[in-house]
Design a binder for these strands. Structure first.
Lengths: 177, 177
DNA sequence: GTCTATACAGCGATAGAC
DNA sequence: GTCTATCGCTGTATAGAC
């Protein structure tokens, strides 16, 4: 991965999370990275290809993060808390979740991206369910759905109000008995 | 409100909920309604004005719906269920929540729209809290936050998977205790 | 209130030099 | 791998006739 390609993905990721995938252009991207728009087409032939690359990168990163947490944090509740912290960090950067954003814009993304988004959230729900199971919940599948839903929805509200603490408050409910 | 203006709002509302506010143009709108783009500018001087009109209309409609439910449905749990049904209907139309969508695209909407979105969700949280309170929950404020968060987040996942039942499953958790 | 006509900037995308 | 140059189209928006 060249330096430029990484920078392009970094900026595109941030712009997608803040303004939506349809809320920025190749020119926005080019100016921030310091290249011409034609150079972007070298790395990502079409904007749809860029969307795919964004989802794939974040999916890979999150799967890797899940693996690291499993290996390094010896407590399921703390592992879940680590993910919550990531989302709280989004609020302070005025960001929504990348895959949440593309899911919102669902009808304007390619079939390929749609498939990847389903996989992303399926993996996330599975991992969360595993943690909840370890925590002793017998309804971990359904509780995981509730957890991930609350996470996405509360992030939306938290960013709207500039108050990251809304995420933790919303999730309290889900962790109760 | 002229017939054309209403039709424009109807189509714009649907396109916003399906593709996002940045995912359609005045030309898309014009072709579907059967007018020229210049006519749209007569009703909504700028696209930002259109966004404002969309939020105001849906806010008014939902506040009215809350009032009607309060007056006509003699059971808080059933009143909540009616709102859930509205969101389940979105899934079958491949729609996200209009204000949820604009909240996702938060950084690309005007300050005026941002303020309206905050009011919309504040009103919704208040009304849901009132219902939860009537249902005997003592933590109605926080539970309402969790309810609305789950509603928005599960709608995102439900549409992604074409499965409206995910909404009810996610909310089960919030109604427990 | 809707139209024609038009302005003009922006869009994604491509060809070909370096 | 990045550039210049350019294409054709689409974007929002306006002026003025009807």
């Amino acid at each position: 991965m060249t330096d430029t390609k990484t920078k392009l993905l970094d900026v595109a990721e941030r712009l997608t999370q803040t303004k939506g995938f349809n809320g920025f252009s190749y020119l926005d991207l080019a100016e921030e990275v310091g290249v011409k728009t034609s150079s972007i087409h070298y790395h990502f032939k079409t904007k749809a290809d860029l969307a795919l690359a964004l989802v794939d990168r974040v999916h890979g990163a999150h799967v890797a993060a899940f693996g690291q947490l499993d290996a390094q944090v010896p407590n399921a509740e703390n592992r879940l808390a680590a993910i919550v912290e990531v989302f709280e960090g989004y609020v302070n950067d005025d960001k929504f979740c990348l895959c949440g954003m593309l899911s919102a814009e669902f009808q304007s993304v390619s079939p390929a991206v749609r498939g990847r988004l389903r996989t992303y959230f399926q993996d996330m729900r599975s991992w969360v369910a595993k943690q909840l199971n370890e925590m002793g919940f017998t309804d971990s599948d359904n509780r995981s759905l509730s957890f991930v839903s609350s996470l996405e929805g509360s992030l939306l509200l938290a960013r709207l109000n500039g108050d990251a603490s809304l995420i933790g408050s919303a999730l309290e409910q889900v962790k109760q008995n």
